[in-house]
Structure formats: C-alpha cells, structure tokens
C-alpha cells in the first residue's frame, strides 16, 4: 500500500476518533454544569483537555460557555467542524481504498454539520446535534468494521484511532486531577465523587467501570481503570495493546514496536495510589503523552516518510 495513502488512513482514524470524543466531552460537561452551577472553571477545563489554550486565547479572552462551545464546534483549526473537514478530505483522497458507504457517511456528516452546527451553540439544541454526531461516527465505524478487509489500510486507520483514543483518555484523566487540585475553588473537593463520575462518563466508561469495580467511585480506582485496564477499549493499556497488535501485522515494524512496548511497560509499572497521594499523576501523564508522541514519530518514520532508492 502507498505510504501516502497509509498516512491518510492513519489521520482519518485519528480525526474520526477526535470528532466523537469531542462531541461526547461537550455533551457530558453540558450536563455537569447543571449539577455544579457554582463551579466556574468547567468550561475552561475543556480547553485544557484539548490542549488548544494558545489557539483559544488568540480568538477569545473569556473562557465562558459561549466562547468555549463556539471554539470547540466551529474553530477553523481546532474544532469538531475542522476535524470533520479534515477527515472528509482524507477520506476523499483515499476513496478508492475505503468502502463506498463509508465515504458517503462522512460526506453526509459534513453536509449535515455545515447546515446544522449553529443549533448546538445553545444548550437546548446541543444534546440532539451532539448525539447525532456520535451516531454518525458509530455508523461509520460499523461500516468499516463489517465491510472492510482487515488489511494494511484498515490497520493504519485502527492505529490512528487507538493512538488518538489513548491520548484523549490520558488528557481527560489529567484534567480530572487538575480540577480537584484547583486551589481557587477548594469547595470542589465536596464534589469529588461527581467529578470522577464525570471523567468516566466523558469516556463512556461509567458502566464498564461499575461492572469492573465494586467499590464506590474514587480517584484511585478510576485512574487505575482508565490507565491499566486491558479489556476496556478506551483504557490506555488496551489502546496500546491494540496498537502493538496492528504493528505486528505491518512490514518492518521493529522501531515502532520498540516505542509501543516501552509505553506499555511504563503504564503497567506505574503505582497509581502513590502517584495520586504524592500529586505526581499530572507529571506522569505528561510522560505518557510524550510516549504517545514517540510512537507517532516512530511509525511515521517507518512507514510514511519513507525515502530510499531501489
């Protein structure tokens, strides 16, 4: 398969995952605000999760609901709309690889959002549109899962999906901790339980967590679950294992494999209770993010930026 096409499939996987994650994130936090009307920094935490603080501050000074939602939905570079546009562009240039329905689906999502996105700026129309976005993404996943051969193209897409997913899980976990450590609002500790529940719900992890952990919801178990669980699809360890498997199906995977097994060892070896009690979780997640970046660099080097002569 062509390196250029492989790269586009990889990014297609990443953007599709990003679209769905962002939609869920906004949706869950819109609900949270109703529970915690006195906590003001919920909206700004969405900007920290996405890591777009700089881009945001060039457009807006105030991190209030209106601005944050507008930014995450419509910004030219950092929003759901921009991800949809890029996913569609990647799908268009790989249309000969992807099942036809998949292209039609992403194209429809684009046309739908182009017309209806403003509805989600206000709370009353938001839930409806965001859940439509999620179901578009899920239908697309379904088409790909059931109609596409598990070939190289599929594997590159799957790697993109999993890397993006691991990235988002670690970010959401990170911001969950930062919220609790926020010294401006010491009263937030009262809501610790609700906040951790919110972290789980942002990742649609609540139900699976409940089945997995008997104890009441607490930071230690949530962090442990989201980092180390091997079975939950959004847990970092699961994503990494999936990436590892995809790598082994591709030609000459040594360097990328080295990078992913390193990250797997780091996750497996971490002591979550200690990280939480010593307030080192944030620093640890930075390290995990750097490892994910390292995996991206290694796979680009091995399969995309390929240069050699016959």
């Amino acid at each position: 398969m062509l390196s250029r096409v492989a790269e586009r499939m990889y990014w297609f996987g990443r953007y599709m995952e990003r679209i769905e994650n962002t939609a869920r994130l906004i949706s869950v936090n819109t609900n949270l605000v109703l529970d915690l009307p006195r906590v003001k920094h919920i909206w700004s935490s969405l900007i920290s999760i996405t890591g777009y603080e700089e881009n945001f501050s060039t457009r807006f000074s105030n991190q209030d609901e209106r601005n944050v939602i507008k930014f995450l939905l419509t910004d030219e570079r950092c929003s759901i709309m921009s991800s949809v546009r890029l996913a569609r562009e990647n799908a268009r240039t790989t249309r000969e690889i992807m099942p036809r329905e998949a292209w039609v689906k992403i194209n429809k999502l684009y046309l739908h959002l182009e017309k209806n996105l403003p509805k989600a700026l206000k709370r009353e129309g938001r839930h409806q549109l965001l859940s439509e976005i999620v179901s578009y993404c899920q239908e697309l996943n379904g088409y790909l899962y059931s109609c596409m051969s598990v070939n190289e193209a599929y594997n590159f897409m799957r790697i993109g999906t999993n890397l993006e997913r691991a990235d988002m899980t670690s970010r959401i976990l990170d911001v969950g901790c930062l919220n609790l450590l926020n010294t401006e609002y010491p009263e937030i500790r009262e809501y610790e339980n609700i906040l951790w529940m919110n972290v789980l719900m942002s990742l649609t992890a609540y139900q699976m967590y409940r089945q997995h952990v008997d104890d009441a919801i607490n930071g230690e178990d949530v962090a442990e679950f989201l980092l180390k669980d091997e079975k939950f699809p959004k847990a970092v360890a699961h994503c990494l294992a999936d990436i590892n498997e995809s790598f082994t199906l591709l030609p000459n995977p040594d360097e990328p494999l080295r990078a992913v097994t390193h990250a797997q060892r780091v996750i497996r070896g971490c002591d979550v209770p200690h990280l939480l009690s010593s307030e080192e979780l944030h620093g640890f997640i930075d390290e995990v993010q750097a490892d994910l970046g390292g995996i991206h660099n290694q796979l680009s080097g091995a399969w995309f930026d390929f240069t050699s002569s016959p």
Binding site: S3, P251, P310
Partner: peptide
C-alpha cells in the same frame, strides 16, 4: 520514483 534500472516504483509501506 524511477530507479537506476529505469523501472518505475511506487513508495509503499513495504518499501519500493
């Protein structure tokens, strides 16, 4: 890419 052997190759994830 055209090689020294005057054959045409495409750049794939497997190599040329």
């Amino acid at each position: 890419v055209v090689g020294d052997d005057d054959c045409v190759y495409m750049k794939t994830v497997d190599g040329l």
